[in-house]
């Protein structure tokens, strides 16, 4: 069976290094040309988890070559929007809270509305930019929860204290399933970090039982390379999510862009998908199960 895991980013980096030949004998200089300016577009990062309240982070795009620092960064956060999440039966206007984990520094949060399996949730963001009012909308559904049958840690043969997380799941043959995996190392990670290759679909194992390994991912795009293994002694929480198609497309294309980033030889159409109308980003519903893995 196919084992999503290693491969993709690694192969791309190899292709890049191979072309390194052409680059290094040549001359490389900083380019001084006028690049087109870009108007800020609303960026939505929102999710609603089964049994939990929705979270929505709002910011704006920055022109590509603008330097971002802690001073001007706050200009890119949207803190005055009216954010509404509603289903067929419920509706709630979200409230603003500070976010200490990562950008943007605030997020919108509900205290009354919680995700239910099979329900559809709409997002409406009303905001004013340059004195004009805009409305961005999106739609998602929380799929059925799929729990792994078992999750364990296994040392890599030949490596003393490094290993991968393994899991087995039984896929539902009657529907198209999409999955996402994240991990949090207790005491080490601030938040759940997507694994290396963090989304996959049941394209090739529909209805079957699948065993896969998960490698450690990077917390951000700037953390290039890095160790793909988990350390013996780590306590790791695996978050296994069942997601919908749009949420899958977003993370899958984002993953594609990360592995091809700064690679001039990669296809130039590696654009990241979005399910936000009048904006970009993602609004996704998911059902997650949590397993604690003690590595020993």
């Amino acid at each position: 069976m196919s084992k999503p895991g290693y491969n993709i980013k690694f192969l791309f980096s190899i292709l890049f290094v191979m072309l390194y030949a052409g680059i290094t004998i040549s001359c490389d200089k900083e380019l001084q040309i006028e690049f087109p300016d870009s108007e800020g577009i609303l960026v939505v990062e929102g999710w609603i988890e089964l049994g939990k309240a929705p979270n929505v982070l709002l910011s704006y795009t920055a022109p590509y070559f603008t330097e971002i620092d802690s001073v001007n960064l706050r200009d890119y956060a949207e803190t005055k929007a009216k954010v509404t999440v509603f289903s067929e039966t419920e509706e709630d206007i979200l409230i603003l809270k500070p976010n200490d984990k990562y950008f943007p520094p605030y997020y919108y949060f509900s205290t009354e509305l919680f995700g239910h399996t099979g329900n559809s949730y709409n997002l409406r963001v009303e905001y004013i930019r340059d004195n004009i009012q805009y409305v961005a909308t999106a739609h998602t559904t929380i799929p059925e929860l799929v729990e792994p049958d078992s999750v364990w840690f296994e040392l890599e043969p030949g490596l003393d204290s490094l290993g991968l997380i393994w899991l087995t799941i039984k896929d539902n043959p009657d529907e198209k399933n999409y999955y996402r995996t994240l991990v949090k190392r207790q005491g080490k990670d601030k938040k759940f970090v997507p694994t290396f290759t963090n989304v996959f679909s049941d394209d090739l194992f529909n209805g079957e039982e699948l065993t896969i390994s998960l490698s450690k991912g990077n917390a951000s795009i700037l953390e290039v390379g890095g160790n793909r293994f988990f350390h013996l002694g780590d306590t790791i929480i695996l978050k296994f999510c069942s997601i919908d198609k749009e949420y899958y497309d977003f993370w899958n294309t984002l993953q594609g862009q990360i592995v091809t980033s700064a690679n001039p030889f990669a296809a130039s159409n590696a654009r990241v998908a979005s399910n936000i109308k009048n904006g970009i980003g993602v609004w996704g519903g998911y059902a997650a199960s949590y397993d604690t893995v003690i590595t020993k």
Binding site: T61, A62, P63, Y64, Y102, L254
Partner: peptide, 24 residues
């Protein structure tokens, strides 16, 4: 060539938004 026009941050990732294909 296709030029990146803007960037944005989601979940710690800097995402590149591209301008029109081969528009530059």
């Amino acid at each position: 060539m296709t030029l990146p026009e803007y960037k944005y941050l989601i979940d710690g990732n800097v995402i590149t938004g591209y301008g029109p294909t081969n528009g530059f």
